[in-house]
Amino acid sequence: MKPHVAVIKGGWSAERDVSLVSGSAAARALAARGYRVTEIDAGHDLAQKLAELKPDVAFNALHGRWGEDGCVQGILEVLEIPYTHSGVMASAVAMNKPMAKRVCAAAGVPVTEDRVVASEDLFKADPLPRPYVVKPVDEGSSVGVVILHPGDNTFSPDVEGPWQQNTEVMVERYIAGRELTCAVIGDRATTGVTELRPKRGFYDYEAKYSEGLTEHLIPAPVDPEIYERVRHLALSAHRALGCRGVSRADFRFDDTSGGAGELILLEVNTQPGMTPLSLVPEMAAYEGISFEDLVVWMVEDASCRR
């Protein structure tokens, strides 16, 4: 008899809408394979709901704060419910961008220089030479990311940005060039590396989740040596952070004229999206792994950790 799976989705982070789509897609896939599925829109009573439901395993489809940063993972550990994706420590560290970069750098994965600054200090002077990127310290899906180029107007408290919701932000050097990404499934990097080409601006939240705004090129049209290095570094970052199940690593590759040719890790996503536009299902499909097969593998992988 197949296990009873609780699909946890929604929540109250900035990525709630994406999580609802991811969770619904995973629930449909599991139901189609004969699993008993209960969908839970996560609220502050999540622990109580799970304690009453007593599922055999949880599919964690939450994205962003509280669902991807170790909080929900801790609840599931206390309730002794096996769950998909990474554990408490890996989730917490990967969600904290500065800390994740330190861990990955110690493992030999190249990252760019950064500073964590008080939001109010952004309005006094540039913390780094332009161009640079401003990010929330602990958000995903490019939520709140802003790039400041030479000649741009200085930030203002009245302009929308991560400084309005966060007392501290991370500022890092902007890397020109291409956006590359690779998934890790289990203990191996996917053979498919994807290049992302936004049709306007950069690969922000809207470009990620709006159909037609970003071109996905798989396999990425880059030199084979760079292609394999992306795969190697994605797996290295996954292992350095202690991730398990499925993760996805995002990179910048500077192949611009006069550029340094550097390949830089941006971040590791421990709970990648599972929407129709999401990258991990696309990379799995490149290897002949259907969406249903991928979701079932994730649940069975979690069940083995009971």
Rank of each mutant, 00 (worst) to 15 (best):
P150S: 14
P150D: 15
F155D: 09
F155L: 15
S156V: 06
D158R: 09
D158N: 09
V159L: 13
G161V: 02
G161A: 03
G161P: 00
Q164F: 00
N166Q: 07
T167C: 02
T167Y: 03
E168D: 13
V169C: 11
V169P: 05
M170I: 15
R173I: 13
R173D: 12
R173A: 15
A176R: 15
A176F: 14
G177Y: 04
L180A: 09
L180C: 10
T181N: 08
C182T: 11
C182E: 08
A183G: 15
V184Y: 05
V184L: 11
V184P: 08
I185R: 11
G186F: 02
G186Y: 04
G186T: 07
D187G: 12
D187E: 15
D187V: 01
R188N: 10
A189R: 10
A189E: 12
A189L: 10
T190M: 13
T191V: 03
V193Q: 12
V193C: 08
T194Q: 07
T194S: 12
E195K: 06
E195I: 04
L196G: 03
L196V: 07
R197I: 14
R197Y: 00
P198D: 06
P198K: 07
F202T: 11
F202K: 06
D204W: 04
D204F: 04
D204Q: 06
Y205I: 11
A207L: 02
K208M: 05
K208E: 07
Y209N: 09
Y209M: 03
G212V: 10
G212L: 11
G212W: 12
T214A: 01
E215N: 04
H216C: 02
H216V: 00
L217W: 08
I218C: 12
P219L: 03
P219K: 05
P219Q: 08
A220R: 03
P221V: 08
V222F: 07
V222D: 08
D223A: 15
E225Q: 14
I226L: 09
R229A: 08
R229K: 14
R229F: 00
V230Q: 08
V230P: 11
R231P: 09
R231K: 15
H232R: 13
H232S: 14
L233S: 05
L233C: 03
A234M: 00
L235W: 00
L235Y: 01
S236P: 00
A237H: 03
A237E: 00
A237T: 06
A237L: 02
A240Q: 00
G242W: 03
G242S: 04
C243K: 05
G245L: 04
V246F: 03
V246A: 05
R248Y: 10
R248N: 10
A249C: 12
